[in-house]
Simulated scan of single mutants.
Amino acid sequence: MILVTAVPLHAAAQHADVTPWMTGERLVKLLGNVDPATLHSAPTSPFRTRAIAAEYRDLTNGEFVHGYIQAVHDATEGKEWCWSDKYQPHPDELEADARQALQLMSDTQLKRNAAVLIAEVWRNKWPCPATKRRDR
């Protein structure tokens, strides 16, 4: 005899807190220097030394962070923060402000989504006038 128990769908699908994939903490870690001692050396590694591998990892991490910040820029400009006659941040300034602000945030703040944190930094510095904000 097979016993089948019916479970209401709402009981089976419980809400769970989801940690963002790219937290502020993770992004800040990518801003730091890679310690060569933490890298595993493999016989098939294209690098002669761990120091060279660490330099390469630093370079690729920096490129990733740069691209991530540019993507946040594209996704949020005109919605979360705005260019205007009064506020005309240069791309270098946007990235520098994002990096600096992240490095100054508390551990609690850095648990949040990195993109949201960056947009908040820019919104505080370059707010959108109510008449120019685009729909999200």
Rank of each mutant, 00 (worst) to 15 (best):
A6Q: 13
V7D: 08
V7F: 11
P8G: 09
P8Y: 12
H10G: 06
A11V: 10
A12F: 12
A13N: 07
H15Q: 12
A16V: 14
V18I: 15
V18S: 11
V18Y: 09
M22G: 03
M22A: 09
G24Y: 04
G24R: 01
E25P: 02
L27Q: 02
L27P: 03
V28R: 13
K29S: 12
L30K: 04
L31C: 07
L31Q: 13
G32F: 00
N33P: 07
V34A: 13
V34D: 09
V34C: 12
P36C: 06
P36H: 05
A37K: 07
S41R: 14
S41Y: 12
S41Q: 09
S41W: 08
S41H: 06
A42W: 11
P43K: 04
T44V: 10
T44P: 00
T44F: 08
T44G: 00
S45V: 09
S45Y: 14
P46W: 00
R48N: 08
T49K: 06
T49S: 15
R50I: 09
A51L: 08
A54W: 07
A54N: 09
E55Q: 14
Y56C: 09
D58E: 10
T60M: 10
N61M: 04
N61H: 14
G62Y: 06
G62E: 11
E63S: 10
F64E: 10
V65L: 02
V65R: 09
H66S: 08
H66V: 03
H66I: 00
G67W: 10
G67C: 03
I69P: 02
I69G: 04
Q70K: 13
Q70T: 15
Q70F: 13
A71V: 04
A71M: 14
V72G: 14
H73V: 02
A75M: 13
A75C: 06
A75Q: 14
G78C: 07
G78N: 14
E80S: 12
W81G: 08
W81N: 08
C82W: 04
C82I: 08
W83E: 14
W83V: 12
W83M: 15
S84G: 10
S84D: 08
S84F: 14
K86G: 02
Q88A: 14
Q88P: 00
Q88Y: 10
P89C: 02
P89Y: 03
P89N: 12
H90A: 15
D92R: 11
E95T: 15
A96K: 09
A96L: 06
D97E: 13
A98I: 02
Q100K: 11
A101V: 01
A101Q: 05
A101C: 05
L102M: 04
L104E: 06
L104W: 03
L104T: 05
M105A: 08
M105S: 07
T108K: 10
T108P: 00
L110P: 01
L110D: 02
K111N: 10
K111V: 00
K111R: 15
N113S: 09
A114Y: 06
A114Q: 04
I118R: 03
I118Y: 00
E120L: 05
V121H: 01
V121S: 01
V121Y: 01
V121M: 01
W122E: 08
N124P: 02
W126K: 00
P127L: 04
P127F: 05
P127Q: 05
P127V: 04
C128S: 06
P129V: 03
